[in-house]
């Protein structure tokens, strides 16, 4: 019963909004907001398997390549900087500056170096994503419990084992927070780098539709992009919950204790 009620509550508003959009736009004459039925028809016609393979897949591959690369670089550099106070004092102002630069302005710069191919887009995503991951890793590494560190030391856990078994796990909730921020930046940069210069990809296709005044198709692209954003964040949350199960349990225990 409870589950039923919760599901009903969760679905009610989306249903009402959807129905409202459908009814209000049903005989819309406005060129820019076509009827929802037309958009949905366009959605089916536009995003065929071929289209997905030609445009959505390359976008996603660039997104994942950039995000993973940024994660590896960010965590590695973050651990190094977090463990060394002198390095941190030197690097922190520079890092704060790079983080504050709005990532999309990197697109024109990186276009100079890397042209307009896939490499450019991946580098743009890496450059934009790496800062939140890096800075959060530094914070996480700094906040590792001193007692845990000393205990590990007395048990002779040193070198690489210290990093993989003590420092990374303790810092992982912070790292996950950085990764979550980076994911939304990655999606933005994926779209923008394709809007700037590309021959395929989601951002490119949607702008093509807009320039060709193919309005229902454009709307369908916006909806697809929205679904993509939602899907990726859901996926991330599932992965995070799995990887950080111990942490959630710890926090729950602390709260009730």
């Amino acid at each position: 019963m409870n589950v039923l009620k919760r599901t009903a509550l969760a679905l009610a508003l989306p249903f009402v909004l959807f129905a409202g959009w459908w009814v209000l736009s049903a005989d819309s004459e406005n060129f820019y907001s076509p009827p929802l039925s037309a958009i949905l028809t366009a959605f089916g016609d536009t995003w065929t398997l071929d289209r997905i393979r030609a445009d959505v897949l390359p976008s996603l591959l660039r997104l994942f390549a950039g995000f993973l690369l940024a994660a590896v670089l960010g965590v590695a550099a973050g651990v190094a900087i977090g463990l060394n106070r002198r390095l941190r004092a030197v690097a922190e102002p520079v890092l704060e500056f790079f983080r504050a630069v709005p990532p999309p302005v990197l697109v024109p710069v990186i276009m100079l170096f890397a042209g307009i191919g896939d490499a450019m887009k991946v580098i743009v995503i890496v450059f934009g994503c790496v800062w939140p991951i890096l800075l959060n890793t530094v914070e996480g590494v700094r906040a590792v419990d001193g007692v845990v560190l000393e205990t590990a030391r007395s048990y002779g856990v040193t070198g690489p084992a210290r990093i993989t078994h003590v420092i990374l796990p303790s810092a992982s909730p912070q790292i996950a927070a950085g990764l979550r921020q980076a994911l939304s930046i990655a999606i933005i940069l994926m779209v923008i780098s394709e809007m700037f210069a590309a021959s395929n990809g989601l951002g490119f296709t949607i702008v093509q539709f807009q320039r060709g005044f193919e309005i229902p198709e454009m709307w369908s692209g916006i909806i697809l992009l929205g679904m993509l954003g939602f899907g990726l964040s859901l996926l991330f949350r599932l992965a995070e919950r799995r990887a950080l199960r111990w942490y959630e349990g710890l926090r729950a225990a602390q709260r009730s204790g």
Partner: peptide, 18 residues
């Protein structure tokens, strides 16, 4: 709750053409 969770992660750059 569900609507907020759905709308929030939509990248705002998706709205650029609109």
């Amino acid at each position: 709750a569900s609507t907020v969770e759905f709308l929030r992660p939509i990248p705002s750059v998706a709205l650029i053409p609109l």
